Amino acid sequence: MFGRWIDLSALRWLHSLKLAVLTCAVLGLAVPATAEVRIKDIANFEGVRENHLIGYGLVVGLLGTGDKLSSSPFTRESIRGMLERLGVANLEGDTLKTKNTAAVMVTAKLPPFARRGSPIDITVSSLGDATSLRGGTLLVTPLTGADGAVYAVAQGAVATSGYNVEGNAASVVEGVATIAKIENGAIVEREVDFDLYQMNSVRIALRTPDFTTAARMRDAIVAKLGPRSAEVLDSGTVEVWIGDKGDVPGTITAVENLTLTPDSIARVVVDEKSGTIVMGADVRIAQVAISQGGLTVRVKENYQVSQPGPISVGGDTTVISGSPINIGGTTVVVPETEIEIEEIDGSFTILRGDVSLQELVDGLNAIGVGARQTIAILQAIKAAGALHADLEII
């Protein structure tokens, strides 16, 4: 009885294990193959965006690495104008010989809904022939928008990430010392007029327009907010209607966190400069035979120097005391050329119809081709009409 009880317990344990494995398998099949993303990660809300700002200013306090006033007249005139506004007048052009000032362009991005007094980051870039902005201080610089109005004012000590060291025989350059950043270097002085509560609807702009993705986005919003709460205007725009309460921020918060699976067209992107190839998961290739081979010719030039002895026949002559004397031979450079020819026989590999991305990569690896050869093969397949995807070469 005791032994039979052990056997029955083992059978029950095995039965429970089979049920657990079967449950895990069923749950695994229920998991979608593609990942879902939030709407806020693939789209923007119309009107909620940054605005670019730009300004012209001066960086002072440089250790002799500023603009040369002889070759940067705008820097000289800017220094004169600044000093005149501060009460220092009657300056002649020849008296300005400073090397501690550089003219710069200041750029920044005004965040959406930025309020007066809010700090923003700025980027300072040299405009003249300054070699480094390290250790400088940016003077008060107004930052204007596309409409010409001043939206922020920048000032502060610059921080560069690069350096430049020069000597008589060598120099060391690390990074770009003529570009600097100032965190919280500008203060917002003017706000962009935009009132969310005056809107009856909100438009969502897809960063990559696609009708299928727009339709899926509409379905996700309707499932959250109710029927007729959203509609597709075009491949890149979905309009969301605000409810009776008019809570625009609440509606945006509810919508931007919804998840969906974006769709994309089949595309192959090729960067010939670096040999980089990126292929989408939906790339398909019809049945095609591929053969890769070629002829490689290597040409190597070697130069040998023939140096004759101090006294040799046929060399240059000179006249000493009225008599010609041979002073030696002539140095001659003798080139030697080595040519190597290597021929690689190509072998055919057949890719059958409706080939997936993994099968395509396996097929190309089977014939031992590199990135450069793969680019040529993809172009040939596209020309043959067997590549069912967009081939984009950048």
Results as ranks from 00 to 15, higher is better:
129 D>I: 14
212 T>W: 02
265 I>N: 12
259 T>S: 12
182 I>D: 02
145 G>M: 11
166 E>S: 15
226 G>I: 00
253 T>D: 12
131 T>K: 01
143 L>P: 06
253 T>N: 12
262 P>M: 10
160 T>M: 07
206 L>G: 03
239 E>T: 14
254 A>Q: 11
134 R>A: 15
186 A>M: 08
250 G>V: 12
171 S>W: 07
158 V>A: 06
180 A>W: 02
182 I>L: 09
267 R>M: 14
150 V>N: 07
255 V>A: 01
259 T>I: 08
211 F>S: 09
204 I>Y: 06
190 R>Q: 12
226 G>V: 00
170 A>F: 13
236 G>I: 03
235 S>Y: 04
155 Q>S: 11
154 A>S: 03
169 A>F: 07
215 A>I: 03
151 Y>T: 04
123 T>K: 02
225 L>I: 02
145 G>C: 09
168 N>F: 08
199 M>G: 07
122 I>Y: 13
264 S>K: 04
206 L>T: 06
188 V>D: 13
216 R>Q: 07
229 S>C: 04
159 A>S: 14
136 G>W: 02
176 V>A: 15
174 E>A: 11
229 S>R: 15
171 S>L: 09
173 V>M: 10
141 T>P: 10
201 S>R: 05
152 A>H: 01
166 E>T: 15
131 T>W: 00
221 I>G: 00
266 A>Q: 05
153 V>M: 12
177 A>F: 07
230 A>G: 07
182 I>H: 07
217 M>L: 08
131 T>F: 00
132 S>N: 03
230 A>C: 06
226 G>T: 00
260 L>Y: 06
159 A>T: 14
165 V>Y: 14
152 A>C: 13
208 T>P: 00
139 L>V: 12
157 A>Q: 01
154 A>F: 12
179 I>R: 14
141 T>H: 11
218 R>W: 00
234 D>Y: 03
168 N>C: 02
179 I>S: 13
148 G>E: 06
124 V>S: 04
248 V>W: 02
160 T>R: 06
229 S>K: 15
246 G>R: 06
258 L>R: 02
126 S>R: 13
258 L>C: 04
178 T>P: 05
133 L>A: 02
206 L>P: 04
241 W>A: 13
179 I>Y: 11
251 T>I: 03
142 P>Q: 11
226 G>D: 01
167 G>W: 08
182 I>P: 01
167 G>R: 10
126 S>C: 15
234 D>K: 10
134 R>H: 10
255 V>W: 00
235 S>I: 05
219 D>W: 01
208 T>D: 04
218 R>D: 00
261 T>S: 10
161 S>D: 12
195 D>R: 10
258 L>N: 01
261 T>C: 04
207 R>W: 02
151 Y>K: 08
189 E>L: 07
220 A>R: 00
239 E>I: 13
237 T>R: 09
227 P>Q: 04
219 D>K: 00
185 G>H: 05
196 L>H: 02
